[in-house]
Each structure stands twice: as C-alpha cells, then as structure tokens.
C-alpha cells in the first residue's frame, strides 16, 4: 500500500521541482519586450526566454480582479494543455506571481491578415496557427444549452444571432466559411456592427431563412464579391454558409471536399503534430491569378 501511496505523486512533484530549477515557472526566465496588444483581461507582450533565447508571447493576466482567476484563463490553459497540433499555438509555461498570471506562448510574428498580405513574397514554410482559446469549451455529448453571446459578431452564425443556445461544433463552421472568404478576398464577408445589421448582411446574400435563395444565385453573389475564388471554392463556401446548423458541412467532411483534392491524399494521413509542409510537393506559392495565369490557382489559395 505505501509504495502506491508514495511513489507516483513524489515522482511528479520531483519532476516539477527539476523543471523549476531549470527556470520554468519563474518570471526571471523571461525578458519583457514590446507591448503587442491589450484585451479586456490580459495584456500581451513580446518577450524572450533566457533559457532558449527564443522569442515568446507573454499573455499577462491581472489578478487584482475580485473574482479571482478569470474563467477564460482557466479554460484556455486547461484546454491548451490537452492540445498538441502543428496548427495550434504552443503554451510553453505558466508563471504565477502575487498580482498576475502570465501564460508563455510560442511567438507568432504575424496575424492572419499580415500573413495573407505577405504570402506573395514569402519563401518560408510557416504554418498558420490558431491562438486564443479563452471562450473555448471541451467537446462533449450534446445535451446542454450554452450562452448565445458567443463568437465575434462577424463570424457568428444566424441561428445563434437569432437566439439559439443549442449549438454544437457547427457553430464554428459558419465562421470557418466567413474566414475562408476573408482570406481569399482580403475583406470580411459579413462585417456587421450590431446583431440586426449582421443579420441584414447575411440575408442580403442568402435570402431570408424562410425563403432562402437557391444555391446557384448565392454562388453568383459570392463569386461577384470574390472573383478570385474558383468554382470549387465557392461550392465549399456554400457548404459552410448553411442556415440550418445541421446542414453545415463538418470539419472532417469539409477536408474531403473536392476543393482540397489537388493537395493529394497524403494530407489526410498527416499526424496532428506534423506540418502540412512536411507532405512532399506542398509549398506556398504566390497567387498565380495575380500573374494572370488562371491554372492551378487553388493551391495558392490555401495559405
């Protein structure tokens, strides 16, 4: 009995001890550089690790708050600790002091907009990574209802805008569609500033929920707004922009859409932690449509 009782927690504790001797979990390990941005509950700084000399992003969460640790911080950290993926930002360390909690992330030097703007003259094979999981939830059995005040307005699906609280993963697929469009043409698809305006913008493209426009006319509208998009891309986009949440394409089915066929079958076998650029033949290239050859423009659209 005593052996079971003592060994495991001790070894875990001693492992943590040795991590702290190296310098993990201590603020002295990181040098704060420029301020990158400020949110409602956190300030983000560029920083440098004295252990590795690597750049890091320091998300400093103030704890003077009378409610203790913000729920966004608890959710973000506990979820990120479970996620290991080439396209998800890595959480390196957590530093806790009397007045603040600092999450140490790998440093990403551009946001998606800057990344898309630069991709024409980029030769490096950088991955796009997702960050900021403050409002994320673990996936579970769909029995619960949630808040309908979720998701940045521009990417919030019509069912949630109209008050639905019974959503599941389809809630995000609408936003995937909006961002897919935005990546292609450089401006947001439905940039409303109020819930009503957001719904109007959506209705203008898709028709009213009771009398939705036929797919062909939706496709025409989308094509006129994003002439660079290939027909297959428009078809994928309409799969994301379905009024009914259940009708929206799932992430895994979306990846099997004909639009991605040119990437070859290997991408579907890629382990989570492997970069898409580890598949032979996949690389970033400047958009050929800019140089007026319309062939094969899909590949460049991807990243």
């Amino acid at each position: 009995m005593r052996i079971i009782d003592e060994q495991k927690p001790l070894s875990r504790a001693s492992r943590r001890q040795s991590m702290s001797e190296i310098g993990f979990g201590r603020m002295e390990t990181y040098t704060k550089l420029d301020k990158l941005g400020q949110g409602t509950y956190a300030t983000v700084f560029k920083g440098k690790s004295r252990l590795t000399d690597n750049l890091v992003a320091l998300k400093e969460i103030r704890l003077e708050h009378e409610e203790g640790a913000p729920c966004t911080a608890i959710r973000e950290v506990s979820l990120l600790k479970e996620l290991r993926h080439a396209n998800i930002v890595t959480l390196h360390d957590i530093v806790h002091t009397e007045r603040s909690l600092t999450l140490v992330f790998e440093y990403l030097d551009k946001d998606l907009k800057q990344y898309m703007d630069d991709r024409g003259n980029m030769l490096s094979m950088n991955n796009v990574k997702l960050a900021d999981f403050g409002l994320a939830r673990a996936k579970s059995v769909p029995t619960k209802t949630y808040s309908n005040e979720v998701v940045t307005l521009w990417y919030r699906p019509p069912d949630v805008l109209l008050g639905s609280t019974e959503y599941s993963t389809q809630i995000d697929m609408w936003g995937v569609g909006c961002i897919f469009f935005e990546m292609a043409c450089g401006r947001p698809l439905f940039p409303g500033s109020t819930v009503d305006e957001e719904l109007c913008l959506i209705f203008r493209v898709l028709g009213c929920p009771e009398t939705p426009l036929p797919v062909a006319s939706v496709s025409d509208t989308l094509l006129s707004r994003a002439p660079r998009l290939h027909q297959d891309a428009i078809s994928l986009l309409t799969c994301f922009l379905a009024y009914e949440a259940k009708a929206r394409v799932s992430a895994s089915d979306g990846m099997r859409h004909i639009y991605f066929k040119s990437l070859g079958p290997e991408v579907h076998l890629l382990p989570d932690v492997a970069s898409i650029f580890s598949v032979p033949g996949i690389q970033l290239s400047p958009d050929p449509s800019i140089s007026k050859s319309s062939k094969n423009r899909r590949l460049s659209m991807l990243l």
Binding site: V77, S78, I94
Partner: peptide, 16 residues
C-alpha cells in the same frame, strides 16, 4: 481566491 489558485496549480491546470 487564494485557494482557487493553489488548487488549479496543484491540479496542473487539468480542469477539463
């Protein structure tokens, strides 16, 4: 509030 942080740290932030 103090105990909250002690607990999440002890649990190594595994809250899901």
């Amino acid at each position: 509030i103090k105990m909250e942080l002690i607990i999440v740290k002890t649990l190594n932030w595994k809250c899901t």
